[in-house]
Design a protein around this nucleic acid. Structure first.
Lengths: 359, 359
DNA sequence: TCCTTCTTTGGAAGCACTTCCAGGCTAAAT
DNA sequence: ATTTAGCCTGGAAGTGCTTCCAAAGAAGGA
């Protein structure tokens, strides 16, 4: 038998503190909220009493009276895993610095989004909503707009809301250019499903890079696996796409821009099963720079994920304090992280050069 | 200039609904909370009105009046990444099935725990606390006990609280046994820092397996990398440990039990840099079965992470409704997932056999 | 000394619910 | 017909804060 707990956690209210400190409840409240118009000595006395009694204001009574919840909700697609988790860290860190709470809704398939949005929209529940990497159903957009709750989008864009994202076309352009300058040709692309905005934009960047370098684009050199989950941003799809390329035989590209690191992982696996080595035989550059990429020594386009999380919260705060702000789209430029998967070397000047150029 | 929003989101309260439906507020409340004693027709009328007006009860007023928050908080070490995220999915899914909210506190270093616990402990804020994979400072334990808030531990154990965890020694035993039966000897171990309970227990299981098979234990055959972060459950530590083993030259073990998949990843990298292949030259079995393990074709001990999350919430619910429950420790047995990293083959009977035995 | 202004304070009136209590009805029982 | 029991219902009294308003007192100015 467990011994019954003695500590009754006597519920003490602001009235108890007020009585004990010989002041009114208003004064106690003012002290606790750092309102300036309290005499220093009174302030001290109240503080001492509150501390001695170990008084904790009741969270929800405060929120009700203050008419704000001091909480933000994040609706994230759980399935994006490696990517979102890093952004989430930034979000959570910043939110807790602000003394806010983060309530998390993880969606496993897109149909859940509406339900969670409804929930988050319940009167008073949250002060703002962060929506991660997903295309938002029109229906949901409408509801969000009707209620006037601050929304910021992360890794998606919509004309109706603030957003934090990454310059996909620039990134793809840079990645492809890197490959082109390495001299390995032709340069192919492993892409995700074209239903997703990032996939479309990254393809655009790829094409643009070819164009700039006077290389004509060929449909045959970009492939997408057919595993649909996560819009094709998954390992299997990368594996499938690369397997398709391998069937081309000697015609196959010698360098690939892959639209995400996780796909690159699959692609590399397919390659190695066919006795082709990276970077010896094939060059690869990925996108995202998830933690894995470092492990794989994958050259990739880094998205500043943690930073994006921080910024998303900051933007949210800004919008909360001034709802009439113009809608702002913040775009990060991904940076090229050169590791070993494409055969580039850092020479003594610290400059990036291509092996193929050196011979 | 943005057009000013017209929709004033008129704040309607339960009184408005009551007036419109021609009933008292008590009745409205009863309808909305599915209290039985309401006449069916009244119920319908109120429901219709509420729907027509699109009435949303105010979350915090409810919580204040009901004296419960319908939210749980999870304090997770962000740095455990791949592992916790899968548990978190289970937790979140179940919590939202219950109509509860999940507030997330991510700790990046152990010192933050106390602060987050204090926050979670604030009067009324949450109905229960889930603590993930960390040894809890004594100080915190005391506070937790004083307040009488339900706590359930996930992937840690303490005599004072319910817990959901995995039978580390059994798992390590099974993994090591698998390796031993494969016939590759000697069998070494790459472990994490012995400050962490799982590391200690997994070592125990490893020793036990040796003992059972009449193999004497040697200190030299278990190594730990010195990268301390995450208590050594990280890729670098695995890499370092394996590099140390490699220095042993021909004496080095031919098979390894590695205390986590992520370390196994590092270990494999070290091996491949030294021209040793898995499983051709060296056998490896990991622990956890994170998503990555599948990618790596790593034989490993699976922890049912999602299930653990579900169960943690269920236990929480049970304890919330009956605080006098005896403390319960739920332990899952990890199961051996045979993939390709140890050279075991499935023969036609579906049985697992070792290559080395076959020759 | 008297008036004005500023600081500090107490406490009532919200905030938006839930819940308990008492009373009005109806229907069953005597 | 009268009592009893039970179902519905309205609304007052919480729930524990914040904030506004009025007022008391102190300080400064004339």
């Amino acid at each position: 038998m467990l011994p019954k707990k003695e500590i009754a956690t006597h519920k003490l209210t602001i009235y108890d503190v007020a009585k004990e400190a010989n002041v009114g409840v208003g004064t106690v409240s003012r002290v606790l909220n750092n309102h300036p118009s309290v005499a220093p000595e009174t302030r001290k006395r109240v503080k001492d009493v509150a501390e001695r009694l170990n008084y904790q204001p009741h969270t929800y009574a405060q929120r009700l009276a203050k008419r704000q919840s001091e909480t933000l909700s994040a609706i994230i697609p759980f399935f994006t895993n490696y990517f979102f988790i890093e952004i989430l860290q930034g979000v959570q860190d910043r939110i807790s610095q602000l003394g806010y709470d983060l309530v998390l809704y993880g969606v496993n398939n897109i149909d859940q989004v509406e339900g969670y949005v409804s929930r988050a929209l319940q009167r008073g529940r949250v002060d703002g909503i962060l929506l991660f990497s997903m295309k938002i159903p029109e229906k949901v957009i409408v509801r969000l707009q009707e209620t006037n709750v601050p929304v910021v989008l992360v890794d998606t864009v919509s004309p109706h809301f603030d957003s934090i994202s990454v310059a996909n076309v620039d990134g793809a352009y840079a990645a492809t250019t890197h490959l082109i300058e390495l001299g390995r040709r032709p340069v192919g692309m492993v892409n995700a499903q074209l239903v997703s905005a990032p996939a479309i934009e990254r393809l655009q960047g790829y094409k643009h890079a070819l164009e700039i370098h006077g290389i004509s684009f060929s449909e045959d050199l970009v492939k997408t696996g057919c595993t649909m989950k996560q819009d094709g941003f998954n390992r299997e799809a990368g594996y499938e796409a690369m397997s398709d390329f391998i069937k081309m035989g000697p015609e196959m590209p010698k360098a690939f821009f892959v639209s995400s690191d996780i796909q690159a992982m699959g692609a590399i696996a397919a390659l190695s099963e066919n006795e082709m080595r990276v970077p010896d035989d094939i060059s690869i550059v990925g996108f995202d720079d998830i933690e894995l990429a470092r492990h794989l020594k994958l050259t990739t386009m880094r998205q500043p994920m943690y930073q994006m999380g921080i910024l998303a919260v900051d933007r949210m705060v800004a919008r909360m304090s001034n709802p009439d702000l113009e809608i702002l789209h913040t775009t990060f430029s991904p940076t090229l992280i050169v590791r070993e998967s494409c055969g580039a070397l850092r020479n003594s000047d610290g400059l990036v050069t291509a092996k193929s150029k050196l011979r």
